[in-house]
Design a protein around this nucleic acid. Structure first.
Lengths: 225, 225
DNA sequence: TCTTATCCATGCGGGTTTTGATCGTTGAGG
DNA sequence: CCTCAACGATCAAAACCCGCATGGATAAGA
């Protein structure tokens, strides 16, 4: 599990590195926004601890650019500020969580754990969530004894949803990851494939369902109880 | 949000009470160390403003005894002294923060907010105040076992109210943050959505209620127990 | 050529947002 | 104490937007 630490105050950065290292995270530390962006754009991290006040680019800008580049690595924003506007600003820039200094070490670890926890399970060349398994080699979706073949686009979208489970996958992320960054695909395309997938899901009698978040995107849900 | 003010100089105590009351904190004021201890031991407060120089028990002693009794209410120590020794002393006695007189009203409020931050704090993808949790990812409001989906505008307004808790959010601020600076939305629009939100709040049986401040705006309140 | 996958255009249905009307509340002034 | 005006709450209807499904056009591969 790799974590990128972005913090210009070297002592704090060190302390964070040590704290995470003790928990067996592999960490890289950078001290300014420009380096942060370079490192994070490799997409190799499972989480990023990002200070807001930084030389060069500030944390908000780093977060915004990462999301623009469709790097969806979870970001935990760190800041000394305590203003509502900053909280909203941070989350709007694409941060996933937010902590104000000074913070408790245990709490920080808990949040990092929370951020890196979800993700569908990949075993061999299958992705499985609940009763659904997606075979990556033959592009088919299985549930119980039944299975269906998926088209390429269907497959890519399903894989995204499964790997992101149970998080919401924004429509524009689906477009950029499935059609490509420079595509001119429209929202409607996604909707069409979601519709196909729902049909196949109900054919398979899977417990999972694709749910909509209006104006945002889709996520998989196991209807509870 | 309840704050105990401990300050023997009555004018200052009054001023503090007023300042906090404007921000919708409920305050109690006591003028000596013995009363302070009695009141604070009830454990009903979310923060304590504690003067050091007091008749009867001094502030340091009050803090020490509270911690002995395992009351962990955050304490903001107030004093005219500006010696490092006092700061260390105060913090060793169990104070969480320290301000020297004279102090700036804005700074005091910021520190109180910092001490009571657990309320209205962002944890993961959720904002929680009292028994209410707003899930930012799927835009739904939860209380106990029940939950409701919120429309986009409803969601934005609720988020503002929660993040600003317990302060009043002016109507024009709601309009500019939710509809945009250049919008021509009218006050009545806000009122309509507040009405929607109140309906959902009561459906959820939440203890929180949206209260009106005439000609100003709205705020969330936990009806006192 | 035939099949399959993908894309695009369209219209329906339902949720969201706006608007206007009505009625209740509050506070000031007579 | 009454009246009035300003403000706020609520409701219902209308307008609007979004997501979904369908069917046909187009492209790609067998």
């Amino acid at each position: 599990m790799r974590v990128l630490i972005v913090e210009d105050e070297k002592h704090l950065a060190e302390a964070l590195g040590q704290l995470l290292a003790e928990q067996r995270y592999q960490t890289d530390i950078v001290y300014d926004g420009t380096d942060a962006l370079d490192y994070a754009l490799t997409g190799q991290y499972d989480a990023i601890l990002l200070d807001v006040m930084l030389p060069g680019l500030d944390g908000l800008e780093v977060a915004r650019r990462l999301r623009e580049a469709h790097i969806s690595t979870p970001i935990l924003m760190l800041t000394a500020k305590d203003e509502v506007q900053d909280k909203i600003g941070g989350l709007d820039c694409g941060a996933d969580d937010y902590m104000t200094k000074p913070f408790d070490a245990g709490e920080l670890l808990a949040r990092v754990r929370a951020l890196t926890r979800r993700q569908g399970e990949v075993i061999g060349n299958c992705v499985t969530v609940d009763d659904l398994t997606l075979r990556l080699d033959v592009r088919c979706l299985m549930c119980g004894d039944d299975s269906v073949r998926l088209g390429f686009k269907e497959f890519e979208i399903m894989r995204l949803l499964l790997l992101s489970f149970p998080a919401v996958v924004p429509k524009d992320e689906i477009i950029s990851k499935v059609w490509g960054l420079d595509s001119n695909a429209e929202d409607n395309n996604v909707e069409v494939y979601i519709s196909f997938l729902r049909k196949k899901l109900s054919f398979l009698h899977s417990r999972l369902a694709i749910r909509t978040v209006r104006k945002v995107g889709y996520f998989l849900e196991v209807p509870q109880s």
